[in-house]
Structures are given as C-alpha cells and as structure tokens.
Design a protein around this nucleic acid. Structure first.
Lengths: 241, 241
DNA sequence: GAGACTTCATGCCTGCACAGATTGGCGTCA
DNA sequence: TGACGCCAATCTGTGCAGGCATGAAGTCTC
C-alpha cells in the first residue's frame, strides 16, 4: 500500500528522529531530504511543517531544520506515540501510558456511572460477559480484543472527549503488553469478576463502586507493567521554567 | 507582531473551525482560502496539512478540504485546546481539563514522591511557602502564578513526560478559573495547608501521603469547577467502533 | 445496473524572488 | 598587536507563480 509521498516523508524523518537515528541538535537541510527521498520541495516542506507542529523539529532561516530532543516532543501526538512504541523507547512509552491509564480509567469509570447513555451500559455488560467466556476458554486473542473494546467503551462512556481519545494509545498498550508476554497464561478469575463489577456499577449508576472496581483492575495492571520497566530512565525537564 | 503567513493561515482557518464558524461537513476549496487570505498555494497547502494532522480537516482529490467535527479533533493538540478555551466551547474544555487534572495530579504526586530529584523537592517547598505568604496577604495575582508553577512542578517531578506535558493546558485552566471568578476572595487556609502537605510528602518520599494530600486539593477543585459546568453537554462518540 | 468517459480539485514538480540569520572580513581603537 | 564593532556576502527557509499528473465523483451510454 503505497501511501502519499507526504505521509512517507513524515514517516521517514519522524521515525528516525524518535528512534534516535537522527540525534537531537542535528541540523538537516531541506535539500538533503529532497534528494534522499527523491521528492520535491513541496513534499518536504509540508512534511517538515507537520513535524514542527509535533515539536520534533524547528526550521530557521540560514541554518536549516534543527532536530529537537524528547523534552520538546508532544507526547500526546499520535504519530510520536506510534514511533515511540515501535522503537527502542518502547519500555518508557508503555510505562508512561500505563501510569496514565492507572490515573485516568478509575475517573472515567466514575464519570461513566454518572453520565453514560443506556447503549453504552448494554454494550459494556455484553463485553464483560464475552470477556468472561473468552477468558475461561483460554482464547487469548479474542480476550485481548474484547479487553481493548471494554476499556475503550468505558473511556467513551465517560463523556470526556480527552479520556475517549486515549482509547487508541491504550489499545496499543494492551497489545504491547501481550506481545511482550506480560500477560498470564489465562486471565485470572478475579480480573474477569472486576470487569463484570465495573460494567455492573456503571449500568447501576454507582460512581463510587465503578471507580473502586476499576481501581482494582488498575492496581494489578500497574504491578504487572511498571514493575517490569521500573529501571527505564525517567525524563525530568529543567526545574526552572 | 506579524507572525509568518503559515501561522496566520493556520490560525485563521483553525480558530474558525473550532469556534463553529465553519461547520462540520462544510467543504472549502484551497483556491478560496488563497484569495480569502491573499496568499499563495504553498502557504495554504502547508497550513492545511498541519490542520489535517490535528484532525480538523481532511483533504481529498476532486472534492476539496472537508471540515471535520469535534469527534475527530485531537483534543490533546495544543492548538485545539487554545482555540477551544478562547471560544464558546470554553466551559466544556475547562471541565474536561479539570476532570483530567483530578485524575492525573494525585498520581503525579505519588510518582513524584517516589522519583523526584532533590532540586524539585526544594523548589516545591519553596513554592508552597511563597503560596502561603501570597495567599495570606491576599495577593491573588501572585498566588495564581505560584499555584500554576506548583502544579507544573509536581507534574514535572513525576518523571512522566505525558504528565509533565499537561502543565500548559492546566495552567490555562487555572487562569481561566480565576478570570471567570470561580476562585474564593482569598485562598482557604486549608488549601494552603494541603499544598504544603503535598510538598512535604514528596520531599519526604511518602507516596501514599502525597497522593492523599493532592486528592484533597483535587476534590475541592472538582467541586468548584465541574459543578458550574455540569450542564454543558457531554460528547459521546458512536458506541460501535 | 455496470462500465466507460468527462470533469475538476488536489498532489506533485519547478523556477524565481525575498527575508533574515550567520559568517567573515574590514576598519577602528586601545 | 589584539580586541571590538560594523557591514557585506552568503546561505537557507519563506513565499510566489505556474505547470502537468492523478484519481475520485459524477455523468452518460449501453
């Protein structure tokens, strides 16, 4: 599937910046990229503009396109997240996203219990039942996809569009977790019960119970993931802004 | 200060989309924008590419530049957040950001207590002391700026770059809250004590205490903000993805 | 209703002029 | 001699104008 030249240019440069192939501080010239990719100026210029909007580069006259470091990247940019998950900084990205999940999902469950429309409640109950079935029969592939849809549904049901927007990176987190073999052979019976409890509490409009049930899930998630990547270096910006 | 034509084009089109002047579904032509802004194609094309990366538009051959609706916007894009805060959707944006704060900041405080380098602890204690002084003397302007720096410092001290990146929108949230007169005449003595407790707990490396103290702050914040904007409509995407 | 044809806006390319930041040379002065 | 300040050359992104290619939408025919 040959995408547009524009997208390929973004991909080519952006992925190399995020995986460290092009170090921060490096200065590249638009003309270099033109000949390197065999495309014209307009393609390069438009791609650079998009990369600049993600904080990956700044372009200044007479000097060129300066590559910025991780402290300047927009960590919520979907492209940045994807490139980080694909490359070497995978562990740090998974840990960051998991910490975000642990913070956000209990709140999302609480809000969902207050505001979720009926369709979402029905779908949540449906998903919880199917998760139990898939989990008990050991169908890990189906379980993963149902798990993804369950958590995306809770985030959407919160009615907070920022929460809902985290569904995609969180889905990638869940996929990454299973790909790396951080999941148990088959889901714990407790986990199945907790998901059911979340769906029940949201459907019954019990915010406090929904939050607590989701916190149980997140507590285990946090142990599973953040323990593994605890050694990965943390990024601290300059204290003085 | 006349910015670059590129930035002005982004601003012109993007702000009109977010504030609803250009409704979702509308199709605009690049040629229209050229004559409307009196700039050349390259400027328009580069601007459209950036707007497309934020999910505001999609451009397809033979049809033009189609404006997308709020459900497709990237709610974490700094430009989108700024435009939403500037326009009519201000209330919903403030509520969303506040809910995000309430979820994230206790977790950030917990992580900060585990990982924060010494410089951050010193600065936090310093800021807490100055906040108390400014708060008791009724200097609300200074208090606001110190409050912003305090919360930004906690987020940075968590060592999670996604949390740290929320400092700017959260700062705007705090400014918006005071501009709209949602703050008390002078800060409550309790609030001053809670901020001090957060700084103390982080400095003493007591994660649980840091989280609980921050939760006290957030609980009040949530009451102050989300109560006011409770009526604003919530955005629910389609349950079926 | 299926397929071929026309249409038309974006995709992509190229040449040119301009603006502004860096660099280095030049002259001045201590 | 050496350090400083000014100015001009230079280099690179910014913006402009125009061209052809592409492919999706609509139309027409069978």
């Amino acid at each position: 599937m040959p995408k547009s030249l524009h997208q390929r240019a973004i991909e080519h440069v952006g992925s190399r910046i995020v995986d460290g192939s092009i170090p921060a501080g490096e200065v590249i010239l638009a003309a270099e990229l033109e000949s390197e990719l065999g495309v014209s100026r307009s393609v390069i210029r438009e791609a650079v503009r998009v990369l600049a909007s993600a904080g990956l580069v700044v372009s200044t006259k007479r000097v060129g396109i300066r590559v910025l470091g991780p402290e300047d990247w927009n960590p919520f940019d979907p492209l940045v997240i994807r490139w980080r998950l694909a490359g070497g900084g995978q562990g740090a990205q998974l840990r960051s996203l998991t910490e975000l999940r642990v913070a956000v999902e209990p709140m999302a469950a609480e809000l969902a219990a207050e505001h979720a429309p009926a369709e979402f409640c029905g779908e949540l109950l449906n998903l919880a039942a199917r998760m139990r079935h898939a989990g008990r029969s050991g169908d890990l592939g189906s379980f993963l996809e149902l798990d993804i849809r369950f958590h995306a549904m809770v985030l959407a049901a919160s009615g907070n569009e920022m929460f809902a927007n985290l569904a995609n990176p969180i889905a990638e987190t869940l996929r990454g977790r299973t790909e790396l073999g951080l999941m148990p052979e088959r889901p714990h019976e407790e986990a199945l019960a907790w998901h059911q409890a979340v769906a029940d509490a949201i459907s019954a409009h019990e915010p406090h119970l929904a939050r607590e049930s989701m916190e149980l899930i997140m507590r285990r998630t946090n142990q599973e993931i953040c323990g593994v990547w605890a050694h990965a270096p943390r990024l601290f910006p300059q204290p003085r802004a």
